[in-house]
Design a protein around this nucleic acid. Structure first.
Length: 160
DNA sequence: CAAGTGATTAGC
DNA sequence: CTAATCACTTGC
């Protein structure tokens, strides 16, 4: 269950890989019609999983930052090398390890059969909180935009 | 709290 | 071609 996300609004958003209309081999994914995965590699070791979210040529995406494990917990634990349950999926790099997500899933259809989203539980708007995004200190006036959203009091979010 | 890690990008 | 950067995690 997704419990934490961040919105990236290229090309205006300085924090987005598509800032200024940057359209390269990597960012090309975000310019496609929404409903597909944008998976990229950072810091030499981690993948990040995003949902492309607008029409073609408007590079918007949602970074999935944390999950609450619901099924397949044993498999996740193996992939995460026996870390305690609460560390399985409480960060964007961690959840990709736990879910087995890598760049082979970049551009994958999220209504397909390799990786997909489905409705699970309805979350009341009052239980959703927002704040500034994480790890984008370079983004100048976009640093403080409250575009990180998480479920209040959920213990699997990446930070309190 | 800082190192690690390598793809990606811009700049020459 | 080179060098800097990075939507992070872990272990000290």
């Amino acid at each position: 269950m997704i419990v934490e996300v961040e919105a990236y609004r290229g090309p205006e958003d300085r924090a987005s890989h598509a800032y200024g209309g940057r359209r390269t081999k990597r960012t090309e994914t975000m310019y496609q019609q929404g409903g597909i995965a944008y998976v990229y590699f950072v810091y030499g070791m981690y993948y990040q999983f995003n949902v492309v979210s607008n029409v073609a040529d408007i590079p918007h995406a949602i970074l999935v930052r944390a999950l609450e494990p619901v099924e397949g917990i044993e498999v996740m634990r193996e992939r995460r090398h026996l870390h305690p349950d609460k560390n399985l999926t409480n960060g964007p790099g961690k959840l990709c390890v736990a879910m087995g997500i890598d760049r082979a899933l970049d551009k994958a259809d999220l209504l397909g059969d390799r990786v997909w989203l489905e409705e699970f539980q309805r979350v009341k708007p009052a239980h959703i909180v927002r704040g500034p995004r994480i790890g984008i200190d370079y983004a100048e006036e976009w640093i403080d935009k409250p575009w990180r959203f998480w479920i209040r009091n959920n213990s699997y979010v990446s930070r309190k």
